[in-house]
Each structure stands twice: as C-alpha cells, then as structure tokens.
C-alpha cells in the first residue's frame, strides 16, 4: 500500500471493528444471562472481556505502529486531537452529573426537607423535627448509624500523593520537550508508581469505611443514604479513572523505553499527561467539596 503525507490515511480491511463487536456480543449476552440467573452468563462475560482485551492490544498496537512509521499526516494528527477533545467533553459531563447531585442534595433538597424557604409544611408534615445538616443520610436515616469520612489521615495523604504525581508528570513533560529521555523515563515511571499507590491507599480507606463502627470502622457504605451514595459514587468513579490513567501512563512509559516521542512529535504523551492532570483536578475538587467545605 502506498502512503503519501498529503493523503488522509485510512486503514483497509482492518479486522478490529468486527473483533470488538463479537467481544461486546459475548459481554452483553453474558450480562443478560446473568441477570436471568443463568450460570453460563459469567463464562460468556469472561470470554467477552478476554476478546475485548485482545482487541485493545491489537488495535492500539496497530495505531502506534502506524504513527511510528510516519503514515499519519497533519490532518490525521488533528483528528486525534479532536477525538481527545470530545472524549474529555464526555468525561466532564460525567463528573459534572455526580458533583451536580452532591450540590443538589446539599444546597437544595436537604434544606427543603428541613423547612427552608416556602417548605415549612414539607418539614412540619412529612419530617417533623428534621434539621438540615451535612453530612446526612436524610431524614429517614437510610443505612443506619455511620461516621463521616474526615479529611485527615489517608485522604490528605492521598491528596499529597496525587499532587506529587502531578508535579512529576509536569517534570516529565518538560523533559520530553527538552529531548531529555533519561529524565522523561524516570519521572514518568515515578508518576504511575504514585498513581498505583493512590489506588492502593484508596482501597484501604474503603475497607476502613465499610467496617462496622463496633469494629473500629465507620459503617459508611454505598447504602448510607445520600452522603454514602454521593461519597462512594464520586470517589469510586474517580478511583476507576485513576486506575485507567495509570494503565495509560504505563503504556506511554513502555513507549518511551522503546524510544517513541520526540520534542516535536509526542501527542500520545501529551494527551495522557493532560488526562492525568484532569483526574488530579477532579480529586482536588472532591477533596475540597466532599471532605472540606
């Protein structure tokens, strides 16, 4: 196949879309079967996940090879950048929904239940004696007794760890621009190690939260009313994003070991670096609004 830099590269006869479709078929059919209590469902989901992983490796591998081979022209580069922008737009909407739920519960719903504004009778007739305060699992005290997660200890330490990883990725970023490969490899490596450390500590924090108060825990669970559900949905999905970001960093790190990325051509690195800054900022928002304010 001939490629020239003035033509927009389109891969011909790629098997990966159909492989991905088969993976999704196994996943969805398996999920539906599991919901209906069939034992074969989980096996089907495992097969689907396996095929999906195979597709991700294969497809991303081809794209990296095409990029390194210099097949992509300026216009393809712009397509990648636009793709990143739309992906981030969806991510922002995703987190905005959960932060929005937290804001609605704290600033509107709970004050109303407490009789704020013109809702005197809501309080008087439905939940007499309920006073608005945060943290709260609502007037029905769904999930029973619990303790709130304070900002000291692990959350503060985790914030320091994630901010440090933000510093190391920025140093790595300066290194890639300066063409300093040794520094790039060292600080990028440090970044994903800090990222995995964060996820490990977050898991420890969750275990502490889930344990009963009598056993030294907080009895704080996903089922602990509006506080528990917003806490775990926000921090849980954030943790998932840190995990994904760390995997992306590891892939990029192996690519730098192989000598990919130059001071002029490193969009893959820059996109992942930006994504890491993004999960860092989401955490900072969480730390401020969930733990502090």
């Amino acid at each position: 196949m001939e490629h020239s830099s003035d033509r927009y590269y389109i891969p011909h006869g790629s098997p990966w879309p159909i492989v991905g479709s088969v993976a999704l078929l196994f996943l969805m059919a398996g999920f539906a079967a599991t919901l209906n209590g069939s034992g074969i469902g989980k096996i089907s989901m495992l097969i689907g996940a396996g095929i999906l992983l195979f597709m991700l490796f294969g497809w991303f591998g081809i794209v990296i090879k095409e990029s390194v081979d210099g097949i992509y022209n300026q216009q393809v580069d712009r397509s990648f950048r636009m793709g990143m922008a739309w992906f981030i737009a969806s991510e922002v909407m995703f987190f905005a929904a959960f932060f929005g739920a937290l804001f609605y519960a704290r600033q509107l719903a709970l004050p109303w239940l407490g009789g704020d504004g013109n809702n005197f009778f809501t309080n008087f007739l439905l939940w007499p004696g309920f006073e608005n305060a945060w943290p709260s699992n609502g007037p029905a005290e769904i999930g029973g007794e619990y303790k709130a997660m304070g900002p000291w200890g692990l959350p503060a330490l985790n914030t320091a760890i994630l901010l440090s990883s933000g510093v190391t990725i920025t140093i790595a970023h300066h290194a890639v621009k300066a063409g300093n490969r040794k520094m790039l490899v060292a600080f990028l490596g440090l970044t994903w190690i800090l990222g995995l450390l964060f996820v490990g500590l977050q898991a420890t924090e969750y275990m502490h939260a889930y344990h009963d108060i009598e056993h030294g825990g907080l009895s704080l669970r996903l089922s602990s009313g509006i506080y528990g559900s917003t806490f775990f949905m926000l921090t849980g999905f954030h943790g998932l994003h840190v995990t994904l970001g760390a995997i992306m960093l590891i892939v990029i790190w192996f690519r730098t070991l192989k000598g990919h990325f130059s001071p002029e051509n490193h969009f893959g690195f820059e996109a992942v670096a930006w994504y890491w800054h993004f999960v860092d900022v989401v955490w900072l928002g969480l730390f401020i609004f969930v733990y502090w304010l």
């Binding site: 922008a85 914030t159 320091a160 969009f267 930006w274």
Partner: peptide, 27 residues
C-alpha cells in the same frame, strides 16, 4: 491549546505548569 496547536507549541505545557503550581498552593 492541546487541540489547537501542534506538537511544537509549548502553550499546553505552560498552562499545565500553572495548573500544578496553583494546585500545590491551594493544598
């Protein structure tokens, strides 16, 4: 800047350096 510029521009890096600097100050 990541979407607008090409790889030669340093504006993305500059903005991200501001980002981490402000975050450390906030913490």
């Amino acid at each position: 800047y990541l979407v607008r510029d090409d790889g030669k521009s340093g504006r993305t890096l500059k903005a991200l350096t501001w980002r981490i600097g402000l975050s450390v100050v906030l913490f």
